[in-house]
Write a protein that binds this DNA or RNA. Structure first.
Length: 474
RNA sequence: GUCCCCAUCGUCUAGAGGCCUAGGACAUCACCCUUUCAAGGUGAAGACACGGGUUCGAACCCCGUUGGGGACGCCA
């Protein structure tokens, strides 16, 4: 049997991080088993669906590297078909028209709650003759669900979950305007698409009881279900915007790499022994639903950051430069010169081990892309005051005298000077760093000088000595 | 409220009756490395929610309690 999974987001917002996890698990499962993975947009609620959201979902999926098979299915486009099969159920006596007004329903729920029962529809039109129907109300179509017995979901993650059929009411299939509800549409679409494994959030577990009733009414095979525990915010509460239930594109903007997001999301609720850093290839080899945990997990930004730092270190210098350049352009207010780009690229190896996000990477590499005189931040300015500045002034000629300008020759020259002046290397290295990078933190200072080149390095040094460097920006 | 689910360090988790004096990772702290900051290395601290069973033996099985989450729409 070919495994067929699907990711079915509703286009009401962007592809949020929880949805991304669901998509990833579905994708992994299908790809792992050589099956198919489909993307379906649940746009039956016209008022809340919009194309921007659909585009954002597609963009997010692509960014994460989750490719789908075949065309994207629009659930809305199947509306007529959905109505058709629902009406067949009415003809077969498996569903019926209900003429309750919204007010009547509301009242029903309220009394049920007051009496300590689950708020269910009481089936008052189940066996009534349609001739009794009020003429001014357009009916909905409800499924006639069994009253006795139990319904069991054989969930791949949660195990057998059982509920009394008396807890399942005759839910709505078709709205008064004839459009299908989600409950009808998912079942019909999943069946039509041949979905074999429904992997989705735990919040759908109780819906599954109803959906199973529908499968039974249609006489269709029931797919395998896997309800994965929900993601919570750091405070254990439902994930909301302030927690990081942001669109995937927000994470991209914050400077995260897709592979870091995927690794993090995968590891949240799923494990393979003690493995933490898991490549996509490895995930494809290892992923199995049986290893998905049963309890909800909290979102931990620190761990994501740690993973991101790891993947930044592993990324190629070229890719990192391409990712950082647009940010640098914004900071500089101008596109990077070829020279700036070249410096950034050759300095990238030293830069990337120190950044947790692309944003940090761009910030820390900015000094490579600035024109003289470069801005000096407060801490750096202090390093250049008094002694520091003097040392630079007396060191400069020694550097100028260098014929060969490499990491090693600069290193040797500076060390020699430090020794002669009876200084610790740090006493000269820090002022140098301040003058050359405008900051008190940077990659190794000899590497920085080598990357900057002799002329630029000496120039920045003389700017610092003469006070030409601007002590404004930070 | 009713129904359903869940419960190991602060967080993510390993653990499928003896391998557990409970392992790893992030975060925290200390030390090492070191020109700064990271990275890296070494080490510290830190958990089986509680109460009953079952068993020679329980983090693992059963029951209850407590706590958390989800669902109860003509939303998806």
């Amino acid at each position: 049997m070919t495994v067929i999974t699907r990711f079915a987001p509703s286009p009401t917002g962007f592809l949020h991080i929880g949805g991304a996890r669901t998509a990833l698990f579905n994708w992994l499962y299908a790809r792992r088993l050589g099956g198919k993975f489909h993307l379906r947009i649940e746009d039956t609620d016209r008022a809340r669906s919009n194309q921007d959201a659909v585009d954002a979902i597609i963009k997010g999926m692509k960014w994460l590297g989750l490719d789908w098979d075949g065309d994207i299915v629009s659930q809305f486009e199947g509306a007529n078909h959905h109505a058709e099969v629902a009406n067949q159920l009415v003809e077969q006596g498996k569903a019926y028209h209900c003429f309750c007004s919204p007010e009547e329903l509301e009242e029903m729920r309220e009394t049920a709650r007051k009496e300590g029962r689950t708020a269910l529809y009481d089936g008052r039109w189940r066996d009534r003759d349609p001739s009794e129907a009020p003429k001014d109300i357009r009916p909905v179509v409800r499924l006639k669900t069994p009253v006795d017995g139990d319904t069991v979901v054989a969930d791949m993650i949660q195990g057998d979950v059982r509920v009394k059929n008396s807890e399942i009411d005759d839910f709505v299939l078709l709205r008064a305007d004839g459009t299908p509800t989600y409950m009808l549409a998912v079942v019909v679409d999943d069946h039509d698409m041949g979905v074999t494994h429904v992997i989705r959030g735990d919040d759908h577990l109780t819906n599954t009881f109803r959906q199973i009733q529908l499968y039974d009414a249609f006489g269709w095979d029931i797919p395998a279900f896997a309800h994965m525990p929900l993601m919570h915010g750091a405070d254990g509460k439902k994930l909301s915007k302030r927690h990081g239930a942001l669109g995937v594109e927000a994470y991209e903007e914050m400077g995260f790499l897709p592979e870091a997001i995927c690794n993090y999301l995968l590891r949240l609720g799923w494990s393979h022994g003690d493995d933490e850093i898991i490549s996509r290839e490895q995930a494809l080899e290892w992923f199995d639903i049986k290893d998905v945990g049963r309890s909800a997990a909290r979102f931990d930004a620190d761990k994501l950051l740690h993973l991101n730092a790891h993947y930044i270190r592993e990324a190629s210098d070229r890719r990192l430069v391409d990712l950082a350049m647009p940010l640098l352009k914004d900071r500089l207010g101008d596109a990077l010169s070829d020279q700036a780009e070249t410096r950034l690229l050759s300095g990238m190896d030293g830069l990337k081990g120190r950044a947790r996000t692309i944003v940090e990477l761009a910030e820390s590499g900015e000094f490579y892309t600035r024109n003289r005189p470069i801005p000096i931040n407060d801490k750096a300015a202090k390093l250049l005051d008094g002694e520091g500045g003097k040392h630079i002034a007396s060191l400069a000629p020694h550097l100028e005298a260098l014929n060969e300008w490499t990491d090693q020759t600069i290193d040797a020259a500076v060390r020699e000077y430090a020794e002669k002046s009876d200084l610790k290397l740090g006493n000269i290295a820090q002022p140098l760093r301040a003058a050359l990078t405008g900051s008190n933190v940077s990659p190794g200072i000899f590497e920085v000088m080598a990357t900057l080149g002799k002329e630029e390095s000496l120039g920045r040094l003389s700017d610092a000595i003469s006070g030409r460097a601007s002590p404004s920006a930070n």
